[in-house]
Design a protein around this nucleic acid. Structure first.
Lengths: 342, 342
DNA sequence: ATGAAAGCGCTAACAT
DNA sequence: ATGTTAGCGCTTTCAT
């Protein structure tokens, strides 16, 4: 039989209202009484009933906002799926979400949408924050004004957010490096295709792989290509590379530009000579896992990232107190042609 | 503004009680009136509020039972964690669980615990069912008497359960085969250590791997060892094998006996000469992933298996109607030394 | 067969 | 600063 606020009230010889105020730090309670109530609650092993809490609060529905750079990036489809599923699962709590999809890592556009949402009035925000000082400042400003924020997929420095939900990028790079080493038997001439050295997260993937690959004397990193977040640019760059450098036999796609790069390989009919290593399970990757061009890819649970971002926000909004800023790392999972389940 | 039963009551000119009775087919309501109420509810787009429903029903708590063969098998620790987490997450709904842990795949013991739980009285059961006709019959009998059942980790034929929650064993075998092929560069003399050919699920892992490895002309499966579910037996068998057959260089542990087998390798100081491929992330495996003896292991999300087993049960019990018997496959994920996150 | 009312655990507005 | 009370949406007696 779980202990309720009523039990505590009786034990502390106060009213239920007072217990509620004390336990939730709503103020207007004698500090001594408040402390006593809290002690008693702890002793009795009190756990608030979220259901009842939600029912009682239900009057004012929770409004969420999301700014996701999903346009033209199929990876984020899964993130959005997770977001929708989470909102759906919270339907009974009277929750709604306004999702703004933007293209690429553009701070201006992101700021615009953030301000729009802020004007409408939201209780929580899910965002894939661009590393930009203005974005950072706006986020901190929103947080100060009471909006809860979770950063999804992309972490950002100096923002006092609720949580970062995403993968450990350096670790994902190490994991990739290890696979490359093991499956090439330590013999490879590598080209690394990354989006931009400025994108810290992707740079971590490069560094992670390098840290492992340096153990292999016969694996040479011959080329670094920056393809932005642009499939077309990536396509042309990889095309150029493969035409000019015939000894490259392994391509390591850090992300962003993977689809374009794969297209270039096929166009030059070099599927047999080359092997590729990628991240995520976007359609183009799945196809070439099956064709055998891609040896393996590393999944970072995008669905989970979306799902958890929303749930974390919800939990934070429902329980008034601010839990510590935290990082929720999703699992990194290696996939080959046989275990592409989702 | 969601429509409530109050709205329907007003629209239909009846009381809330009648609406509730009609909508939930509780009987004792004029068929015509009932039909009218249902029509109106549908027209208004009524969706019952599960939260309020749970709060109101809260009086009679849901009682769950579990029979898990976790003793001496560290894999199931994670399953149990998932079970506990799910029960915890449903705390507000007033749920409790009685977990019976048994050792190995013993039908007698399992039957005993099932009957015990049945006597106590439970609404739902999570079980790792041993393939046995008596177990099968008892399960079907329980189901007929109204108890909901989910099979966790182990599937069983001819049982009309709510759901099977676990991995696709054949697929996990294929995945392992593919890794072995890729990381040995198609050159290997393999020994397969399995628990028992009688355990259909583990046999699927062998078949799955074989189906992929037959593509590699220079990978030879030299030995099949049956080690039961016994670490000690496995230890001795592997010891014997390695002493006698010097050309074996790859060991494929299907599961059950992995810990014992690894111990044998270390004892003979053959860590450098041999490489192992395993399943799951049990402590011994994690250790040898780090040491480099194990190239990779395949995780099947045991936590998720436990978690989902309970949630599925809960959903089925709460929503009176019986959803179709279904199979919920957890993801299969390849892990190497760098992405052992959990 | 139907209505009225109490209550699940909590919050919030209103008294004191 | 603290107590009282009226709900949130639904279920479940108890009347009628």
């Amino acid at each position: 039989m779980p202990v309720t606020i009523k039990d505590i009230a009786k034990a502390a010889n106060v009213s239920r209202g007072t217990v509620d105020r004390a336990l939730n730090d709503r103020g207007g309670v004698n500090p001594d009484v408040s402390a006593r109530i809290k002690t008693i609650a702890a002793e009795m092993g009190y756990k608030p009933n979220t259901i009842a809490k939600a029912l009682a609060t239900h009057a004012k529905p929770i409004r969420l906002g999301a700014v996701i750079n999903s346009l033209g990036n199929p990876f984020f489809d899964k993130v959005l799926e997770g977001i929708h599923a989470a909102v759906e699962s919270l339907h009974d709590y009277g929750i709604s979400i306004d999702i703004r999809k933007i293209r690429g890592y553009d701070p201006q556009r992101q700021l615009y949408e953030m301000r729009q949402l802020r004007e409408i009035g939201i209780d929580g925000l899910v965002i894939t924050p661009v590393p930009d000082t203005k974005v950072r400042d706006e986020l901190n400003d929103m947080i100060r004004s009471g909006v809860r924020v979770t950063c999804c997929n992309l972490d950002i420095d100096d923002v006092n957010y609720q949580a970062y939900v995403g993968c450990d990028y350096f670790c994902s790079g190490q994991t990739a490096g290890e696979i490359i080493g093991a499956t090439t038997h330590g013999e490879a001439n590598l080209a690394i295709i990354t989006s931009s050295h400025a994108l810290y997260t992707h740079e971590m993937r490069v560094k992670g792989a390098e840290s492992v690959l340096k153990e292999y004397p016969n694996i040479h990193i011959c080329e670094y290509i920056e393809a932005g977040d642009d499939e077309d640019l990536s396509y042309h760059e990889v095309l150029r590379l493969l035409k000019q450098d015939k000894k490259i036999d392994i391509l390591y796609f850090v992300t962003g530009g993977t689809t374009g790069g794969l297209k270039a390989i096929h166009e030059l009919h070099q599927e047999d000579r080359l092997r590729a290593y990628t991240f995520d399970l976007i359609p183009a990757v799945i196809e070439d896992l099956k064709s055998g061009l891609i040896v393996s890819t590393i999944d970072q649970q995008p669905y989970m990232q979306g799902f958890q971002s929303v749930r974390t926000l919800f939990d934070a909004i429902l329980s008034r107190h601010t839990p510590a800023r935290k990082q929720i790392f999703t699992e990194l999972n290696i996939k080959n042609r046989y275990n592409i389940s989702s």
